[in-house]
Amino acid sequence: MTPQNILLIPKIERGFVIDHIVAGLGIPVMALIGRRPELGDAVVTLGLNYKSTRMGRKDMIKLQADALPERLLQMLALVSPGVTIKRIANFEVVEKVVIQVPELFDNLARCINPNCITNGEPHVATRFKRLESGSKHFKCGHCERVCSLAELAGHLKA
């Protein structure tokens, strides 16, 4: 890490680093964090557009919190799959997990089809199943409309 980076986004003693966010998605990821009442007291630092050997440019977020809500992790898989979650203790990385695209999104997003019954009856839990392993397309478990990961990310539920 260069001295300039340290100045912009300092090390944290404990908490989590969400690293390898595709440049430009840092702010949408911040919005996800902002939706979680469990993280209301967390100190959050956002860094945008860092140079990255692997990605060219990347965004990064540091949270001083004891735990990350499960729903936040699920939403990260939808909005920014491929990010690395690093758990920090005593300024050191003690655990590292890469968030993958799952086979199923359970009640995380609304269907993109306005005529899907799940949009007519919003209390109904949605589900979107991956078409096949490795695909970035998902099928609505109700109306069977196929949509992309990006389309689903634009229809997040609260």
């Binding site: 269907c111 089809n113 005529n115 899907c116 019954i117 799940t118 007519g120 009856e121 109904v124 609505c140 478990g141 109700h142 109306c143 069977e144 409309r145």
Partner: peptide, 10 residues
Amino acid sequence: RHPKEGTARL
């Protein structure tokens, strides 16, 4: 039968 898609599954 219903005009909305997904009703039978629901």
